[in-house]
Design a protein around this nucleic acid. Structure first.
Lengths: 336, 336
DNA sequence: TTCACCCGTCGAAGCGCTTCGACATCCTTG
DNA sequence: CAAGGATGTCGAAGCGCTTCGACGGGTGAA
């Protein structure tokens, strides 16, 4: 292993001069700098992380805190991870996958041991136990997902409010006048995720703007819940022709339930969803959807992190604009 | 950040005693050790990586050198990565994804900067440019894939020879007497991968053992190549009833070509493949196959690495036994 | 009772690097 | 020609930790 003293000896200067010549933190004469650089190159010198004083120069490593509970979400998590890694590479950083502990433990470990310069934190919940830690740690971080109280943090997420609006806009443009939102299970709105509530806001406000008749229905999962909600919707709103679904596992059962009740999709009923693209594409009827842009979120998170590291100011919350992809589940309303 | 001196002060001992008490590298009285441990726990002490002398204690990080060229193989690579990460977690290690440079650069960087204790190297080729480096670096490593000259390295791979045999055994057991291997493109056998050649060996020797008539045909990809090879096989070996395919992209076109020639799979022709499970399962006809067990390979690699780190001897080359999964493409030969 | 030895602990050195303060030069200026 | 300021370089300290060598006190044996 070639160290700074080797370079110094070969260049005929002191180690500190080498350090300055390479870092540019102090003015060094052109001749000396060139000599040092040549020596470093010839010897294949590469600074060893062990030598850094703890708070000193960066290790060029980004930590990625991803809850990799076996079996859960693996494809989606993966998509994020790949995009983070790719983006990190573009910024000349490596990525340290955090797998120990359930999150707090791992983050503290990275910060204390100085293993990474910064962290990307995935799967953020409304009241995430990691938040106080992130606020107090000297480790810059970016969250994917917006918690209840984002003060003092940096967050990226899809703009779920706009996503809700976009679905309604789409249905309204197709001529639908009575719409419903079939949402996530009630408990989601209470305790877990902020985005669910924002989606509802967007849905409602867009419906009002278009002067549509609209209702919102949190809904559990499973075939029975699907049947129940479908029947109820038809009973309470016989004129219903547009449905927005924000509940991945319910997608297929719901389409099924509607068809059993004699409503074809999209013939009698148009349906849009907010979900990952693969889910929408592989449903019984490919569903027009607003995609959760995992890849772009990852990229964006890394960008923000790099800016933070360079000391540049970053916005507290970045919301990505949603994009709607038309598939086979929506059509213009047939006028009676 | 709480450091070793803080713990020492609180426990009323010297920093070195703390170090010994926690590492167990020297005998420390029970009372002192308990006091130190209590102090460390109360203060939330965690050693900082920066303090380690370069060759000293481990950082508990495993590097994963994965050629993440965008778009290439992502799902397969991912499966490996996930299994490596999961296994690493089981051994209380984090995983550093190497993304810089094309491989040599990244490995050298990790070794020099002391970022990881060891490395898992994926996508190893017959003449891999990283091999000399791996031999000379002070960084223990395990390769996934066996190169031409594995001396001085540690490798894990599927036992492709046995995989070839297994396919033939299966066909023989079903009563097939004339078999053919449709392999990878010729250049693969020449320059790239060792496993292709080993598969051929296994195929041939098993065929001989069962006294089957057998032929081997390297083959390019694409619909035309498939048609050509299918016609040629039937012309040269009209009695052919068993085919082994080791060429993923050719799978579907080949089945197609055979059926156009009037041969049903598996009615007239039984077909087995060596490929990842998803490819086999989603082919036109689900194909009986020997799976490349990515997950197990990753796990095994980490196991070996951990053993190496602990100083235990490890076998140079570990070949995993193949397992054959029956699907819809093989059937007993119908006796004329 | 004395000597030898071992156990448990400590002090100090050292890892490779950065960075602060100091010190030569050399070039401006007055 | 002297004083002052740049400019470029060096020595030394220090980061948090490990580890070597040493030392003191207790124990057991003679």
């Amino acid at each position: 292993m070639v160290k700074i003293t080797d370079v110094a000896r070969r260049a005929g200067v002191s180690p500190s001069t080498v350090s300055y010549a390479l870092s540019g933190k102090r003015p060094i004469s052109d001749a000396t700098r060139r000599r040092v650089q040549a020596a470093a190159r010839e010897l294949g010198y590469r600074p060893h992380a062990g030598g850094r004083p703890p708070a000193g120069r960066r290790s060029k490593v980004l930590a990625l805190a991803v809850p990799l509970r076996p079996g859960v979400h693996v494809p989606v998590v993966t998509e994020f991870a790949v995009s983070v890694v790719t983006a990190a590479r573009a910024h000349d950083h490596d990525v340290l996958l955090l797998t120990r502990g359930e999150g707090e433990e791992g983050l503290r470990h990275v910060a204390d041991a100085g293993l990474a310069d910064a962290a990307v934190v995935m799967d953020v919940q409304l009241q995430d136990p990691r938040l106080p830690l992130l606020r107090s740690l000297p480790l810059p971080s970016v969250l994917i997902g917006v918690p209840a109280e984002p003060d003092g943090l940096t967050c990226v997420d899809l703009d779920f409010r706009a996503a809700g609006e976009l679905c309604v806009d789409h249905l309204a443009r197709l001529g639908h006048r009575v719409v419903a939102l079939v949402g996530s299970p009630p408990e989601v709105y209470v305790r877990r995720t902020a985005f669910a509530r924002r989606l509802v806001e967007g849905f409602t406000s867009a419906a009002d703007r278009h002067r549509l008749v609209s209702t919102v229905h949190p809904c559990g999962s499973g075939r029975d819940a699907a049947r129940a909600i479908a029947e109820r919707l038809l009973r309470e709103q016989p004129a219903l022709t547009g449905v927005v679904v924000h509940n991945e596992p319910l997608l297929d059962p719901l389409i099924d339930a509607f068809e059993r009740l004699g409503l074809r999709v999209p013939g009698d009923l148009s349906l849009t969803a907010v979900c990952p693209a693969p889910v929408a594409g592989s449903a019984r009827v490919p569903v027009t959807s607003v995609t959760v842009p995992s890849a772009e979120l990852g990229t964006r998170a890394v960008h923000l992190l790099v800016r933070k590291l360079s000391g540049a100011p970053v916005p507290q919350t970045t919301l990505l604009p949603p994009r709607l992809t038309e598939r086979a589940s929506t059509a213009a309303r047939v006028l009676a």
